[in-house]
Design a protein around this nucleic acid. Sequence first.
DNA 1: AAATAATATATGATATTTCAAAAATGCATC
DNA 2: GATGCATTTTTGAAATATCATATATTATTT
Lengths: 248, 248
Amino acid sequence: MPSIAPLNPELDPDEAIGLTRDSLSERIYSRLRVALLTGLYAPGTRLSIRKLAATYHTSPTPVREAIFQLVREGALELKLGYQPRVPQLSIEQYINIRETRVPLERLAAELSTVNITETEIQKLRELHQAFVDCEKAENWKAALIANQEFHFTIYRASRNDILVRCIENLWLLAGPIISYQYPHIRQAAAETHPHLLVIDALSRRSPSEAGELIVRDLREGSYRIIEQMKAGVVGEPQKKMRKARAPR
Amino acid sequence: MPSIAPLNPELDPDEAIGLTRDSLSERIYSRLRVALLTGLYAPGTRLSIRKLAATYHTSPTPVREAIFQLVREGALELKLGYQPRVPQLSIEQYINIRETRVPLERLAAELSTVNITETEIQKLRELHQAFVDCEKAENWKAALIANQEFHFTIYRASRNDILVRCIENLWLLAGPIISYQYPHIRQAAAETHPHLLVIDALSRRSPSEAGELIVRDLREGSYRIIEQMKAGVVGEPQKKMRKARAPR
DNA sequence: AAATAATATATGATATTTCAAAAATGCATC
DNA sequence: GATGCATTTTTGAAATATCATATATTATTT
């Protein structure tokens, strides 16, 4: 089992500063989270607490704690007595997620337009370039991560961490599907990539424009996802149900 | 030992009504959540896992699992090695929460205007009446609950459970402060109570109006809260810090 | 009396254990 | 070959055990 690199390595080395040594549960939580965000587990996959514990060389207890957190966020589902599973989003649920994201992303973009620094805008340019390069090289996983970093940089520039957390949560919910079918959904090489338009609006400090562009990007991406979902690219198939047994 | 199948599995009572028997952790989670939402624990209070376990007549394990979920949602904070605590919100954080709630609540109100049934509108009238009665009787806790039920009924009528969950989360974050200082912040008896205006807009099926009213209500309430926070009504004082010790 | 040091206790983090239920497996039957 | 049943294995839930550290208490010093 490969160890998963954190999305944002710069922010990781807590050990180095000795600031926030985190608990085992927390470390496992973030590794699982990244795994879900990068599509390591297809929708429908069942996770075994004990196997994960073995993988991470720990006992089941901290794994359970991590899983409980992800369940609470909706990133995993867990019926009493059954194995935790990566949820299989319905199209309806996916649309619900998108519609909830829309006003949050708009707000984030608007706030960022006011608060973002030139340095951060420069970073956006670099991230977008990395994204384009990875796409060209057909390195999907890296492209996905660059794209995420691009968007999260904007969110964080809103300087409202509550808002950031809300949006992160929603990403996580749709994460497995998106990552899983990412290679199939990249957009046709358009005139000008939406990211570039966003960067432009940000540097011209036009909040409403930035908000509008972000929302448009979100909606357009979602159409492609929904197409794929309709086409049935949906992840691991459910195991066939045998006759219902009495629950515990 | 073979497990004996019941005579008629399909009619198992739990499944039949769609009830999900929940685990101990889940039950403890919801009790803690309600406790936080109704102001049982003041901001700053420290919770002891073992004491809670004793209170609920269980072992520490499920309590920990419940606490981890609340920590993940931001309803509790937990530094490695220290006791879980009810966070002490800064005014800045509180404003962040409010600003994030604004677009979500507006969206929820708009969607509800389209989807809410007459029955639900009737329920809103009853809840508001209950709220007014409890206030008159100075039964703060019951008033608080009625008020919550009122708003959550609107959220749920949006028919977007992702959206509902996001908003619930944000309520939870500000829950302890609001409940804790509730008696101090009720509004001066105005001309017409905002709730009534909202009900009216809903029944006239005017989305933008309903959204606008909800947002206005939210903002006005928040001003009173912030006043109180500035006045220092803030919860349990932090224990005095002793000389810093080396972390683990 | 106040501040510090020393000790005792309570606590959180994790591993281990136990148990009943779920999933997998193998076998017999059609 | 598929299908239904019994057995075995695996699994999650929860309790308990253990350990190091945080907190509380007491003793000691200034």
